[in-house]
Amino acid sequence: MPKAYATTCSFTGMRLSSTHGHHFIDACHIVPFSLTRDEKSAMALPSAPICTGLLIGDC
């Protein structure tokens, strides 16, 4: 996922990477993974961890 979207959150536009080359992008599934079991990148949006938490209700 990070290389496909250049480490940019699709919701905030923030680029999330470290000076050591680590990426901090999550994949936020459009349709819950538990329903589809589809891991294709077309089924997910790159997002910052805080955005993923807000969308799935973990925050």
Rank of each mutant, 00 (worst) to 15 (best):
I25Y: 00
L16N: 06
S18T: 08
D26W: 00
S10F: 11
T19N: 08
S47G: 09
G13N: 03
M43Y: 08
S34N: 10
P32R: 05
L16E: 06
S47K: 03
C51Q: 08
S34M: 13
H20A: 11
F24L: 13
I56P: 05
D38T: 01
H20V: 12
D26C: 03
M14D: 14
H23A: 06
S47D: 05
P32T: 09
T52A: 11
P46C: 06
C28S: 05
M1H: 12
L54H: 12
Y5A: 12
D58H: 09
A27Y: 02
A44I: 09
S17G: 10
R37L: 07
C28Y: 02
H23T: 09
H20Q: 09
H29W: 01
I56W: 10
A48P: 02
H22R: 11
S18W: 00
Y5G: 07
H22V: 05
D58T: 07
S18I: 04
G13F: 04
R37Q: 08
D58Y: 08
L54R: 14
M43H: 11
T7D: 15
A4I: 15
K3E: 15
C59R: 15
A27I: 04
G57N: 12
A27C: 03
I50L: 13
M1P: 10
G57F: 03
G13R: 05
P49H: 05
K40E: 10
G21F: 08
